[in-house]
Design a protein around this nucleic acid. Structure first.
Lengths: 368, 368
DNA sequence: CCTACTATTGCATACGTTTGCATTGATTGT
DNA sequence: ACAATCAATGCAAACGTATGCAATAGTAGG
């Protein structure tokens, strides 16, 4: 029921707006920022002395007396360091880029939070970019980041064989992968232990008595989709359960889940449980089951993956694997910082353990 | 059921990692980036000519022949502009800062997306920061942004009377508010039309037959909480329904909603419907109702606000007001760009229309 | 053919900071 | 008391780009 999409636009009280307004017609920054030089004259020292006095790492070179004089002058004038000038001379911007497929996908915000959290304490800022589109699109985004002289990049968009990673390596700029991994292991990465995830999911279902378990895979060209499928196969085999019942969804979306699940129901109609590659796909299952007149968990059990917000409140509450999104971000940032410190070190892989959240979308199979 | 939170860490194949590794022990950037100067010598022109030839706005000063020569040289050498150097000379970084309360709150990712989307096409990059904490914390974040010489700031954290906004005005750096607004109207802002929201919500409930409607407000020191309360009062009055039944939740969270709703049920026990200030608070209502042995919508109807993901799938599907998060972000970016172009213009307020999503958490009141 | 343009290019400085090296006193060892 | 050392500071050259101004050459007008 769309009520009104129009948009109103009215002017508002100006007030302050005129404060600087009545000067030269085109002065960009009227209170032309105070520089290190201004501080220098006020403290009666050379600018180099100011620079050192203000830099914790070089402060020891300056006498205490002068340091306080500089500090006072700095405070009095309201001096603020210009980090882009600093970046230019030092060759390090203290900025790192974060490349996401789509920040609206709820797995990423917690990661971004974790990344930012860890980087902030080390004085780094975060440049963010969504690279939803094609490969060329992502190249462009990466190029933008390079132009901005980022000191490093966190990539959450990696495909199993990723061009961006190669670029970063070639350009010699530190990169770490998060969430998704890359086959060649050229870069450090922090990922969920998807094998463990599938082990937990299958064990849980087998424990409930299921013997015909199918897998609704995510795109297999993405490491997450691929690893979970592999993990499912291994887990199924170790539990002596058919491992081949799989349909691949084209995307990690509810819509793709619906389509794939419909196909799955047709192809493997004896299945009593479905392990979906992520929660959105699992929700697509709900839709497909409803459309087929099947009830969850009564007719078919469903397990999701990721434990995104609110899946505990839907009907039925989804059994799923919680993964440590925020911690993943933190670790990724940590790895990147380590890499910045010692670029020659071997790329490391950090694996985070998932946690099975048992809710109501799984139950023993119908006895019939 | 926590299974395992341990973290495994193994080394991985190094491969490429050694490619640049066997050189001088501490060379930061071995393939020392190609600069405008390198391009100049190859094209046999001055660096100033290269600069102009590569800058679309100055290109007309250079002969076509030389332009192509420069382009070729640039391409051949793999030249890439150093935007931090550029930022230093031009005094504009082409970066804008976005300050959020918490990116994990699902209303913000779409906004960020909209902001980034619009800014990207104009060549701006987005520096992001979460400023969840206290006022001092947010000041620090803002300071960081200033040090990084952002050309403008988008603030999503504004309180009704905000210190950050004043700082921005004083420092003469363009700022626009998004989602939340500020009383003094010193800055342009783009917000949802919360009055309209409440009008729609109340009209809907009254149409269903409700006469005792209560409001579960968000924090009143935030513009959203405040405006929705005001809007509720006006809407209630215009429908000749008691306007004073209100309890304020301390936060926009499910937990705060639970607490506030419990209080509300005690204080206004005859209410047949609740309009919550946002969806999370509405979910808190669900909890409180369940705890009180009441069913929604049978005993009490609930209306949310924001239409965050998955509230259409919970039980019962939540009637709520959809707001145009992404568009809000776009408009905010647009306003900021306009402000950058003409800083003297009067601050404008853009209001976006909400849309009532009628689902199953609202129904006619029990006849009893 | 000379002058006044215009179009194209180069020269040199600036942006604000960092940092290697030189300089200045002061202090220590012999 | 003199050399050697050391601590504290200043000097000046970067970093890579943008841009005002000067210089050059070519062109048109008279």
């Amino acid at each position: 029921m769309r009520v009104n999409t129009a948009l109103r636009r009215g002017s508002a009280f100006t007030g302050f707006a005129m404060m600087w307004g009545m000067r030269a017609p085109n002065r960009p920054k009227p209170p032309s920022r105070v520089t290190i030089r201004d501080v220098a004259v006020r403290a009666r020292v050379d600018i180099s002395t100011v620079s050192r006095a203000l830099n914790p790492d070089a402060r020891h070179l300056i006498s205490d007396e002068v340091v306080v004089r500089v500090m006072e002058a700095s405070k009095a004038l309201g001096y603020r360091k210009n980090k882009v000038a600093s970046a230019l001379t030092r060759g390090r911007s203290q900025v790192i880029g974060v490349i996401l497929p789509d920040i609206e996908n709820s797995v990423f915000p917690p990661m971004v939070r974790g990344i930012e959290e860890r980087l902030a304490v080390s004085g780094y800022a975060v440049l963010i970019a969504n690279a939803a589109g094609a490969a060329a699109d992502r190249e462009r985004v990466l190029e933008q980041m390079f132009e901005r002289q980022v000191d490093g990049v966190v990539v959450a968009t990696a495909s199993r064989d990723d061009q961006m990673i190669r670029r970063c390596i070639l350009e010699n700029i530190p990169v770490v992968l998060v969430n998704r991994s890359e086959e060649h292991r050229h870069a450090p990465e922090v990922v969920n232990d998807d094998f463990h995830s599938m082990q937990l999911a299958v064990a849980h279902l087998v424990g409930l008595g299921h013997r015909k378990i199918a897998h609704l895979a995510g795109p297999l060209h993405l490491s997450t989709g691929f690893a979970r499928w592999q993990g499912f196969q291994m887990a199924a085999q170790s539990h002596r359960v058919a491992a081949g019942h799989m349909v691949e969804a084209t995307e990690f979306t509810r819509q793709a889940g619906l389509i794939a699940c419909t196909e799955l129901l047709k192809r493997y109609r004896s299945s009593t449980a479905i392990v979906a590659s992520n929660d959105l796909i699992a929700l697509g299952c709900y839709d497909a089951l409803a459309a087929a007149g099947l009830r969850c968990p009564h007719d078919i059990s469903v397990v999701g993956h990721n434990d995104i917000p609110l899946v505990d409140m839907i009907n039925p509450p989804l059994t799923t694997l919680r993964i440590q999104h925020r911690e993943m971000g933190r670790q990724a940032a940590q790895l990147l910082l380590e890499r910045l410190a010692s670029p020659e070190a071997k790329p490391v892989r950090v694996t985070l353990a998932p946690e099975l959240m048992i809710r109501s979308s799984t139950a023993p199979p119908r006895s019939g």
